[in-house]
Protein backbone atom coordinates (compact mmCIF):
# COMPACT_ATOMS: atom_id res chain seq x y z
CA UNK A 1 0.00 0.00 0.00
CA UNK A 2 1.56 3.30 -1.07
CA UNK A 3 0.53 6.81 -0.09
CA UNK A 4 -1.01 7.56 -3.50
CA UNK A 5 -3.33 4.58 -3.32
CA UNK A 6 -4.27 5.30 0.29
CA UNK A 7 -4.98 8.95 -0.56
CA UNK A 8 -6.98 7.76 -3.56
CA UNK A 9 -9.08 5.42 -1.46
CA UNK A 10 -9.63 8.12 1.15
CA UNK A 11 -10.77 10.74 -1.37
CA UNK A 12 -13.02 8.11 -2.93
CA UNK A 13 -14.49 7.30 0.47
CA UNK A 14 -14.80 11.02 1.22
CA UNK A 15 -16.67 11.67 -2.05
CA UNK A 16 -19.25 9.02 -1.12
CA UNK A 17 -19.58 10.39 2.42
CA UNK A 18 -20.04 13.96 1.07
CA UNK A 19 -22.88 12.73 -1.13
CA UNK A 20 -24.49 10.73 1.69
CA UNK A 21 -24.19 13.79 3.94
CA UNK A 22 -25.76 16.06 1.32
CA UNK A 23 -28.69 13.74 0.78
CA UNK A 24 -29.18 12.98 4.48
CA UNK A 25 -28.71 16.54 5.78
CA UNK A 26 -30.73 18.33 3.12
CA UNK A 27 -33.16 15.41 2.54
CA UNK A 28 -32.69 16.34 -1.11
CA UNK A 29 -30.92 14.77 -4.06
CA UNK A 30 -31.50 17.63 -6.51
CA UNK A 31 -28.67 17.81 -9.00
CA UNK A 32 -27.58 14.24 -8.28
CA UNK A 33 -27.85 11.70 -11.10
CA UNK A 34 -29.52 8.53 -9.84
CA UNK A 35 -28.27 6.74 -12.94
CA UNK A 36 -24.65 7.42 -12.01
CA UNK A 37 -25.31 6.09 -8.51
CA UNK A 38 -26.88 2.94 -9.92
CA UNK A 39 -23.90 2.44 -12.21
CA UNK A 40 -21.51 2.80 -9.26
CA UNK A 41 -23.47 0.23 -7.29
CA UNK A 42 -23.14 -2.21 -10.22
CA UNK A 43 -19.41 -1.39 -10.44
CA UNK A 44 -18.86 -2.28 -6.79
CA UNK A 45 -21.02 -5.42 -6.88
CA UNK A 46 -19.25 -6.70 -10.01
CA UNK A 47 -15.77 -5.89 -8.71
CA UNK A 48 -16.03 -6.94 -5.08
CA UNK A 49 -17.44 -10.42 -5.65
CA UNK A 50 -14.18 -11.78 -4.28
CA UNK A 51 -15.11 -10.20 -0.94
CA UNK A 52 -16.11 -13.62 0.42
CA UNK A 53 -13.58 -15.75 -1.42
CA UNK A 54 -10.24 -13.90 -1.32
CA UNK A 55 -9.08 -12.25 1.89
CA UNK A 56 -6.42 -9.66 1.05
CA UNK A 57 -6.42 -7.49 4.17
CA UNK A 58 -8.81 -6.15 6.79
CA UNK A 59 -8.55 -2.73 5.17
CA UNK A 60 -9.43 -4.17 1.75
CA UNK A 61 -12.45 -6.09 3.06
CA UNK A 62 -13.75 -3.24 5.22
CA UNK A 63 -13.49 -0.72 2.36
CA UNK A 64 -15.30 -3.09 -0.02
CA UNK A 65 -18.19 -3.45 2.43
CA UNK A 66 -18.28 0.33 2.96
CA UNK A 67 -18.39 1.08 -0.78
CA UNK A 68 -21.07 -1.51 -1.52
CA UNK A 69 -23.32 -0.49 1.38
CA UNK A 70 -22.90 3.28 0.86
CA UNK A 71 -23.67 3.11 -2.87
CA UNK A 72 -26.67 0.87 -2.16
CA UNK A 73 -27.81 3.29 0.56
CA UNK A 74 -27.64 6.25 -1.84
CA UNK A 75 -29.60 4.39 -4.52
CA UNK A 76 -32.14 3.24 -1.90
CA UNK A 77 -32.54 6.86 -0.66
CA UNK A 78 -33.08 8.17 -4.19
CA UNK A 79 -35.61 5.46 -5.01
CA UNK A 80 -37.42 4.73 -1.75
CA UNK A 81 -36.90 7.45 0.83
CA UNK A 82 -40.26 9.32 0.91
CA UNK A 83 -38.77 12.82 1.18
CA UNK A 84 -35.60 12.39 -0.92
CA UNK A 85 -37.18 10.60 -3.87
CA UNK A 86 -39.49 13.56 -4.50
CA UNK A 87 -36.48 15.83 -5.12
CA UNK A 88 -35.01 13.61 -7.83
CA UNK A 89 -35.40 15.42 -11.18
CA UNK A 90 -36.17 12.40 -13.36
CA UNK A 91 -36.72 14.34 -16.58
CA UNK A 92 -33.28 15.96 -16.27
CA UNK A 93 -31.44 12.67 -15.64
CA UNK A 94 -31.94 11.38 -19.17
CA UNK A 95 -28.63 9.71 -20.04
CA UNK A 96 -29.27 6.22 -21.51
CA UNK A 97 -27.00 4.48 -19.02
CA UNK A 98 -28.06 1.03 -20.24
CA UNK A 99 -25.85 1.74 -23.27
CA UNK A 100 -22.88 2.22 -20.93
CA UNK A 101 -23.57 -1.12 -19.22
CA UNK A 102 -23.87 -2.94 -22.55
CA UNK A 103 -20.71 -1.33 -23.97
CA UNK A 104 -18.69 -2.14 -20.84
CA UNK A 105 -19.94 -5.73 -20.92
CA UNK A 106 -19.02 -6.23 -24.58
CA UNK A 107 -15.60 -4.68 -23.97
CA UNK A 108 -15.07 -7.00 -21.00
CA UNK A 109 -15.90 -10.03 -23.14
CA UNK A 110 -13.24 -8.96 -25.65
CA UNK A 111 -10.56 -7.37 -23.47
CA UNK A 112 -9.90 -9.26 -20.26
CA UNK A 113 -6.96 -10.88 -18.52
CA UNK A 114 -8.51 -14.37 -18.67
CA UNK A 115 -11.81 -15.49 -20.12
CA UNK A 116 -13.25 -16.50 -16.75
CA UNK A 117 -16.40 -15.28 -15.01
CA UNK A 118 -14.42 -13.49 -12.30
CA UNK A 119 -12.01 -11.76 -14.70
CA UNK A 120 -14.81 -10.69 -17.07
CA UNK A 121 -16.79 -9.25 -14.15
CA UNK A 122 -13.69 -7.45 -12.95
CA UNK A 123 -12.90 -5.96 -16.39
CA UNK A 124 -16.60 -5.04 -16.78
CA UNK A 125 -16.49 -3.16 -13.47
CA UNK A 126 -13.31 -1.32 -14.48
CA UNK A 127 -14.74 -0.22 -17.84
CA UNK A 128 -18.10 0.71 -16.33
CA UNK A 129 -16.47 2.79 -13.61
CA UNK A 130 -14.61 4.78 -16.27
CA UNK A 131 -17.89 5.99 -17.80
CA UNK A 132 -20.25 5.84 -14.80
CA UNK A 133 -19.85 9.58 -14.15
CA UNK A 134 -21.27 10.54 -17.57
CA UNK A 135 -24.94 10.86 -16.53
CA UNK A 136 -23.84 13.05 -13.62
CA UNK A 137 -21.65 15.27 -15.83
CA UNK A 138 -24.50 15.70 -18.31
CA UNK A 139 -26.82 16.63 -15.45
CA UNK A 140 -24.32 19.15 -14.07
CA UNK A 141 -23.74 20.85 -17.42
CA UNK A 142 -27.45 20.88 -18.19
CA UNK A 143 -28.45 22.17 -14.81
CA UNK A 144 -25.80 24.88 -14.56
CA UNK A 145 -26.80 25.07 -10.90
CA UNK A 146 -23.79 23.13 -9.71
CA UNK A 147 -24.69 23.18 -6.05
CA UNK A 148 -21.41 23.02 -4.21
CA UNK A 149 -21.88 19.66 -2.47
CA UNK A 150 -22.56 17.86 -5.76
CA UNK A 151 -19.68 19.74 -7.36
CA UNK A 152 -17.40 18.69 -4.50
CA UNK A 153 -18.62 15.11 -4.87
CA UNK A 154 -17.49 15.00 -8.51
CA UNK A 155 -14.28 16.84 -7.68
CA UNK A 156 -13.26 14.22 -5.08
CA UNK A 157 -14.18 11.41 -7.48
CA UNK A 158 -11.84 12.93 -10.06
CA UNK A 159 -9.10 13.38 -7.45
CA UNK A 160 -9.42 9.71 -6.41
CA UNK A 161 -8.76 8.50 -9.93
CA UNK A 162 -5.90 10.98 -10.37
CA UNK A 163 -4.25 9.60 -7.20
CA UNK A 164 -4.69 6.07 -8.58
CA UNK A 165 -2.80 7.02 -11.74
CA UNK A 166 0.06 8.23 -9.54
CA UNK A 167 -0.24 4.93 -7.64
CA UNK A 168 0.10 2.92 -10.88
CA UNK A 169 3.13 4.94 -11.94
CA UNK A 170 4.68 4.39 -8.50
CA UNK A 171 3.94 0.63 -8.58
CA UNK A 172 5.27 0.36 -12.13
CA UNK A 173 8.66 1.68 -11.07
CA UNK A 174 8.86 -0.02 -7.69
CA UNK A 175 7.14 -3.39 -8.00
CA UNK A 176 8.26 -4.47 -11.42
CA UNK A 177 6.38 -4.20 -14.63
CA UNK A 178 3.14 -6.07 -14.13
CA UNK A 179 0.81 -5.42 -17.01
CA UNK A 180 -2.14 -3.55 -15.57
CA UNK A 181 -3.12 -2.12 -18.92
CA UNK A 182 -6.86 -2.64 -18.30
CA UNK A 183 -6.71 -0.47 -15.18
CA UNK A 184 -4.32 2.01 -16.74
CA UNK A 185 -6.26 2.68 -19.92
CA UNK A 186 -9.70 2.87 -18.33
CA UNK A 187 -8.26 4.93 -15.44
CA UNK A 188 -6.90 7.41 -17.96
CA UNK A 189 -10.23 7.58 -19.80
CA UNK A 190 -12.03 8.09 -16.49
CA UNK A 191 -9.72 10.90 -15.37
CA UNK A 192 -9.93 12.44 -18.83
CA UNK A 193 -13.72 12.64 -18.57
CA UNK A 194 -13.31 14.68 -15.40
CA UNK A 195 -10.91 17.09 -17.08
CA UNK A 196 -13.66 19.04 -18.85
CA UNK A 197 -15.71 19.06 -15.66
CA UNK A 198 -12.76 20.53 -13.77
CA UNK A 199 -12.44 23.10 -16.57
CA UNK A 200 -16.05 24.23 -16.04
CA UNK A 201 -15.88 23.81 -12.26
CA UNK A 202 -12.91 26.09 -11.82
CA UNK A 203 -14.05 28.63 -14.44
CA UNK A 204 -17.55 28.82 -12.90
Amino acid sequence: MNAFRFLGDMTHLFSVLVLLLKIYATKSCSGVSRKTQELYMVVFLARYMDLFTDYISLYNSVMKVVFITSSAAIVWCMRRHPQVRRTYDKEQDTFRHVVLVAAAFVLALIFNERFTFREICWAFSIYLEAVAILPQLVLLQRGRNVDNLTGQYVFFLGAYRAFYILNWIYRYFTEGHHSRWISWLSGLVQTGLYADFFYYYFLR
Binding site: D9, D54, E113, H178, S183
Partner: peptide
Protein backbone atom coordinates in the same frame (compact mmCIF):
# COMPACT_ATOMS: atom_id res chain seq x y z
CA UNK B 1 2.76 -16.23 -10.86
CA UNK B 2 -0.54 -15.65 -9.11
CA UNK B 3 1.05 -12.79 -7.15
CA UNK B 4 1.22 -10.54 -10.15
CA UNK B 5 -2.44 -10.33 -10.87
CA UNK B 6 -3.91 -10.45 -7.41
CA UNK B 7 -6.55 -7.76 -7.37
CA UNK B 8 -5.30 -6.01 -4.29
CA UNK B 9 -6.64 -2.60 -5.31
CA UNK B 10 -10.13 -1.33 -4.60
Amino acid sequence: APADNVKDEL
